[in-house]
Design a protein around this nucleic acid. Sequence first.
DNA 1: GCCGAAGCGTGACTTCGGTCACAGTATCCT
DNA 2: AGGATACTGTGACCGAAGTCACGCTTCGGC
Lengths: 207, 207
Amino acid sequence: MKLDETFPQFDPELIQHLEKIGQVVTYEEGDMLMRPGQYFKNSLLILDGRVKLYREGEEGEEFFLYYLEKGNACALSMICATKNETSEIKARAMSPVTALAIPIQHMDGLMRDHRQWYYFVLETYRARFGELLEVIDQVVFHSMDQKLEFYLKRQFTSLQSDKISITHQEIADDLNSSREVISRLLKKLESQKRISISRNEITRLNL
Amino acid sequence: MKLDETFPQFDPELIQHLEKIGQVVTYEEGDMLMRPGQYFKNSLLILDGRVKLYREGEEGEEFFLYYLEKGNACALSMICATKNETSEIKARAMSPVTALAIPIQHMDGLMRDHRQWYYFVLETYRARFGELLEVIDQVVFHSMDQKLEFYLKRQFTSLQSDKISITHQEIADDLNSSREVISRLLKKLESQKRISISRNEITRLNL
DNA sequence: GCCGAAGCGTGACTTCGGTCACAGTATCCT
DNA sequence: AGGATACTGTGACCGAAGTCACGCTTCGGC
């Protein structure tokens, strides 16, 4: 296990402790890690892969919130775990995912005994809180074309690539819009030479 | 100081400690408690009054997020304080506010030595996170009339009254909409006998 | 009482985004 | 190769909500 590489800020003692109390779990692409109403018995540290978090509407619509990646922890699972509350968002593996499951009964002790863990948890909360605020910005203050740009930039950044494989329909779902609208806006971006479009693929040019 | 009444979940020892390290601060109605870009030196526990938190758009628009009231703590100030990060939201006193300011250097010790404080902080994070998710629901999945209903219900609940004093313009600002739209929608709600409207005032009937 | 300011009501118009219908094109499977 | 199935492009239309213009009412101050 490459815990020390994924979490270089943890000292060997903490790493060792985590290895002892945690259990490695894996998910296949498409697996659900959390669904609304579910209780948590573990807090998850992502070791590898990408997890997509989204909010579900009353009629099953899905709105993309953010990704969790290698080195991230699931803030929700940590919070809800300690409170024994149920989740309010859905999480789906977007690739094969490896994670370390830390049983919730260890959370208090970790927080108390390991300064680095405590800071890590706080930073996790802060980062996710900030991401939610950015999402709110987008939906409140911006029009569809701006939301799309923001969305694409996030994808490029998150995948560390100038090329993403995605259909217009998937983007529309993530933004709670419709395919036709997204197609038109993508066309507009293409005509401005900011992206190029081909089937199942969008390439960043000047975005 | 009525710390023990406002925070009945804290034991006398913790209360005593907080009284020693904290300082009571007061704000007038309209005062800004936080503004974007500001650093925190304190974490705030609200002892009395109402604080309105909102997100600011690029052109100065204000979008209402949630209220902090007696017994709440400012999650943002706690998170940002420990990380020495800057705020990304604005907070304004909506009434005279009394609060206890806890210097950030005490946060680590409190978290370590007082189980009740630790749970309180986690619960604060969880509650605010949940509120942000609800806000996202509203703006993503719902139309203006539904957002307005949700908004009004929150106001009635928060003020513990069936009558709120507010102008249509203020509602429009909070929802990042325009006065005319809000006026029309309020009229509709009134014609459905769900509220009654008079100048500067909205009364809950069947909402 | 009178005047000005703040708050509210309403019709006309515009714009953005969602929907519908349908056509064209790439890809996959056998 | 041929047909089925995704994926994309496009015009026509509609409805929600933002904007503009204007007039009316209520209230407070002098």
